[in-house]
Design a binder for these strands. Structure first.
Length: 265
DNA sequence: CTCAGTGTTCAGTG
DNA sequence: TCACTGAACACTGA
C-alpha cells in the first residue's frame, strides 16, 4: 500500500535493519523493467561492502546513503515493499534485490506488478526525479499565505492537484480522498475557485491525516473509525461511512474518487 | 474472461 | 511554453 505513510513505515523498517551495518553481499533478480535498464552488475558493485549511513525519504521515493556514491534509489510503484528475514529460504516471491548484511540478516525489496523502479544516483535528493517534487506532505513548512497561493494559481480540480507530486509529494489516491472528505471539500472543485477558508481546512486536514497515519506506521486497522478509508474500497454503492453518509464514486484525474456529497461542498 | 487498481510518465490537446 | 487530460505500462486478484 505505498502512499506516504506506507513508504515512511518502510523507511523506518530499513533504518532499523540496515543503518550502521555493512552490506556483505548483493543479489539482483533479472528484471530490466524495474531496474530501468541499469545492468545488475552496477547495483552489485555500488552496494557490495558498503556501509549504510542513513535511509532517507521524500514523497514516495526512498534512498540509502552509503559511505560511497552512487546510492540506490527506490520507488515502490503500486505494489512494492521491503522485507526483513534471516533465512535464505524466506526470500519473498517477486523479490527484485536482496542485501545480505554483515550480521547475516537479509533485506529485500519486492515488487509484484513491476511498476516500481530501482535506480542508482550520485545525489538523489538534488537530481530528478526527487528534485522535481514539491513539499513533502509529512514535512510541509509553507507559510499559510504561500500555501494558499500555490493552490489558487491552479485551475485543475483540487483532487488532481493533491495527486500532483510536484505540489504535495507523497499524497496518493486514498489520502487525497481522505483529506478532501475531512476538509469537507468537493473533489471536483477547481483550485482557483476555493476560498481561503477552504484552503486552510485543506492544509489542516492534510497535516492531521498524514501525521496520524504515520504515527500508527500505516496500520489501517488503527486509523480512526470515522475515516472514509475503511469504506472507500470496492466501489460499493451501498457502503456508508461511520457517520451513516452515502458515498459516491467518480472518475477524477483518471482515478476513482470516493466522496460524500452530503458533506463535501 | 474481464476489469479495476494504493503510481508515474508521456503524447496529445487547447 | 504551459496546464491539463487520458492512455499506457505490468500484473494480480476479484
Amino acid at each position: 500500500m505505498p502512499e506516504l505513510p506506507e513508504v515512511e513505515a518502510a523507511r523506518k523498517l530499513a533504518e532499523q535493519q540496515v543503518q550502521g551495518r555493512q552490506v556483505h553481499s548483493v543479489h539482483i533478480s533479472k528484471d530490466p523493467v524495474v531496474f530501468d535498464g541499469v545492468p545488475p552488475r552496477a547495483f552489485a558493485n555500488a552496494l557490495r561492502m558498503r556501509r549504510v549511513l542513513a535511509v532517507r525519504r521524500k514523497g514516495k521515493y526512498l534512498w540509502m546513503e552509503l559511505d560511497r556514491r552512487p546510492w540506490p534509489l527506490f520507488h515502490f510503484g503500486m505494489t512494492g515493499s521491503f522485507h526483513v528475514y534471516q533465512k535464505p529460504a524466506a526470500r519473498p516471491q517477486f523479490w527484485k534485490m536482496e542485501l545480505v548484511m554483515d550480521d547475516g540478516s537479509r533485506f529485500a525489496i519486492r515488487n509484484v506488478r513491476r511498476l516500481g523502479r530501482i535506480r542508482l544516483a550520485k545525489d538523489p535528493e538534488n537530481q530528478p526525479p526527487v528534485s522535481t517534487l514539491g513539499f513533502d506532505a509529512l514535512n510541509e513548512k509553507l507559510p499559510l499565505a504561500a500555501f494558499i497561493h500555490q493552490v489558487q494559481k491552479r485551475t485543475c480540480p483540487i483532487k488532481s492537484l493533491l495527486l500532483n507530486q510536484a505540489f504535495a509529494a507523497g499524497v496518493g489516491n486514498w489520502l487525497a480522498d481522505e483529506i478532501l472528505y475531512q476538509a469537507r471539500i468537493d473533489p471536483h472543485r477547481r483550485c482557483n475557485r476555493l476560498g481561503t477558508d477552504d484552503i486552510r481546512n485543506l492544509r489542516t486536514s492534510l497535516r492531521r491525516i498524514i501525521c496520524q497515519a504515520v504515527a500508527v506506521d500505516a496500520d489501517a486497522s488503527r486509523f480512526p473509525r470515522t475515516w472514509l478509508f475503511h469504506v472507500r474500497w470496492g466501489k460499493d454503492a451501498s457502503a456508508r461511512t461511520a457517520r451513516g453518509e452515502s458515498i459516491r464514486f467518480d472518475q477524477i484525474a483518471g482515478r476513482t474518487t470516493a466522496w460524500v456529497p452530503s458533506r463535501q461542498r
